[in-house]
Simulated scan of single mutants.
Amino acid sequence: MQDYLKQICTAGEWDDVQITTSLLASLVGVSPSTSSEMIRKLAAVGMVTHRPYGAVALTDAGRSVALRMMRRHRLVETYLVAELGYTWDEVHDEAEVLEHAISDLMLSRIDAKLGHPTRDPHGDPIPDADGVVQRPDARRLSLLEPGESGIIARISDEDPEMLRYFDELAVALDRPVTVLRRLPFGAGTAIALHGPSEVTVDMGDLATRAIWVTRA
């Protein structure tokens, strides 16, 4: 139940999407029938609302549980990178296991050890102990027009291989970027990465959609 509630919350965190049972099945990795059965159970205990063939939405109680799980997951990811030498493409699956195993005391010790971080290694906001989330006002890099600049605030962790690709390009949180031009025939976008060393790269649409930026 915790995994389902967390997925419903995170799926709509950065995008305005309709959470359906079929989408949820894909996100959790189960069959549509299994997803539908779990939604019925969650609705029965007051965690979600759902009409047949309609969207699934969290109740206040469901959102509270989801935010607690998001906090656990993202603090564990941050700890694995900061203290145990994991790379950002390795931590998701580990955190999926550990978020259910650690105690509240251990979680609070991890939070204190890290200095109470507000975001995880991918830029996703970490809810505080009261469930308050401070999400940056960011939009996809793919939505910027040529000449517009931004600062990288979030990078999707959906595809570990893409994270390794971004490592090769030195794409990282807080790095300034500028959209230079659209490449012809839908070939992608030319991007300037600013910093100690200025780099110009050609990115495909999937890559630019995976990066969120705040205003420069």
Rank of each mutant, 00 (worst) to 15 (best):
L163G: 04
K41S: 12
G147N: 11
H122L: 11
D89L: 01
A95M: 02
H73T: 06
R135M: 13
P184D: 10
S36G: 11
E99H: 05
R164Y: 02
E96K: 06
L107F: 04
P127K: 05
A55G: 01
A101N: 04
G85A: 02
D205W: 11
E99R: 05
Y165D: 11
E99Q: 09
T49G: 05
S22I: 13
R175I: 07
P52D: 08
V76I: 15
T10H: 13
P32F: 06
S22F: 13
F185R: 15
Q134W: 01
E168Q: 09
S156T: 03
I191F: 05
V179C: 02
L144V: 03
E90Q: 14
T189S: 13
T200H: 06
L5N: 08
T49K: 05
M1W: 12
S31M: 02
L107V: 07
I191R: 02
M70L: 14
G115M: 12
V213M: 10
E148H: 01
K6R: 15
A101F: 01
V97Y: 00
H116A: 08
L42I: 01
A190C: 05
L206W: 00
P121W: 04
R40T: 02
H194T: 05
V133F: 11
E90P: 02
A129E: 13
R68G: 08
A66W: 06
G188H: 08
P136G: 08
D159S: 12
R154Y: 04
E158V: 15
V48C: 06
V56F: 07
L141S: 04
V17E: 15
H92Y: 14
W14C: 08
P32C: 05
P160V: 02
E77P: 08
L183M: 08
I110Q: 08
L183A: 06
I155V: 05
P184Y: 13
S64A: 14
K41H: 10
V30P: 02
G54W: 01
G147S: 08
E83A: 10
V133Q: 13
I155Q: 01
A11N: 14
R215G: 09
G62T: 00
L67C: 14
T78L: 12
G29E: 00
I102P: 03
I19L: 12
L84F: 03
L163E: 04
L144F: 07
V30S: 00
